[in-house]
């Protein structure tokens, strides 16, 4: 997938989280407390944790969409809240789990929204070309002229990923990028994300599949759903003990040379 038309329109900057606390809603339950970590350009982070652990909340806080209950998120030299929305749009792209498509729009038009919004220097024809190239990169080039409302879940998800990449912001925040994707397209995603970080970009993606996480990520952040977390390289985080604790099921790790495989021991339930 070296054909992916990666075009970063801002220089990548590191992301720092210091003593961040997150709540569900304004006064809801505590999701995470005292979360501190640094994400450097060129790294690919997998965000792991059980349902309701705060993965989406953390991603939207990092996107600047919601505020943290405590602590600070810095992007480069500035606190996230100090970034004007327009500049932030050139620095990070956010790919949510759910999309609204109330009115007809073709695939390429949907992708082109992100291009036009963040790269006004491109002509309309260039924006369309870039949009179509990204759709090809995610193997939905043939559906570029179709109404997005008629696409299947997995096809719509690939249009969404193409949209996030086409925005050209170095920091990609992906909320369950492999949701609805079949195996072939999950496999397709991995070299794309590697190429992204090779170009200097950063990936921060919430995922449920541990094998997927091991294969695409260089680092991992594991939320345990009780306010605790483990952060570090994938080798440090993706181990049986922290995973079994966080997911409350016995996870076993099979090592095969450099590779690791993860499976849940369904016969035994941990209490």
């Amino acid at each position: 997938m070296s054909a992916a038309p990666i075009r970063l329109n801002a220089s990548p900057v590191p992301l720092h989280l210091r003593d961040v606390a997150l709540r569900a809603g304004n006064a809801g339950r505590q999701l995470v407390s005292a979360l501190s970590l640094s994400i450097e350009p060129g790294q690919r982070w997998a965000l792991l944790g059980p349902n309701g652990a705060g993965k989406s909340t953390l991603l939207s806080a990092v996107a600047g969409l919601s505020t943290t209950a405590a602590g600070e998120i810095r992007l480069g030299e500035r606190a996230l809240s100090q970034w004007p929305a327009r500049e932030l749009a050139r620095q990070r792209a956010w790919c949510p789990q759910f999309w609204l498509d109330p009115f007809p729009a073709s695939g390429w038009e949907t992708v082109a929204c992100a291009v036009v919004a963040t790269q006004p220097d491109l002509s309309a024809a260039q924006a369309e070309l870039l949009a179509r190239d990204w759709l090809k990169g995610f193997d939905v080039g043939a559906l570029a002229d179709n109404d997005v409302r008629t696409l299947s879940g997995g096809e719509r998800q690939r249009v969404a990923l193409a949209t996030a990449c086409a925005q050209g912001a170095p920091l990609l925040l992906l909320d369950e990028p492999t949701a609805h994707l079949d195996w072939a397209h999950q496999v397709l995603l991995q070299p794309l994300l590697s190429a992204w970080s090779a170009a200097g970009g950063t990936v921060f993606a919430a995922v449920h599949d541990l094998n997927m996480a091991w294969n695409f990520a260089t680092h991992a952040l594991l939320l345990d759903g009780q306010g605790g977390f483990v952060a570090g390289t994938r080798e440090e985080v993706l181990q049986a003990a922290p995973l079994s604790h966080a997911y409350a099921v016995p996870v076993s790790v099979l090592e095969e040379g450099d590779a690791r495989w993860f499976r849940v021991d369904l016969s035994a339930r941990r209490d």
Binding site: S60, P96, A117
Partner: peptide
């Protein structure tokens, strides 16, 4: 008008594109 189009796809997403 263009920003109004982007808004139809979700407030949060439109904001991440820089739309007030």
């Amino acid at each position: 008008a263009r920003e109004l189009d982007w808004l139809t796809r979700g407030d949060a997403w439109a904001w991440t594109l820089g739309v007030p």
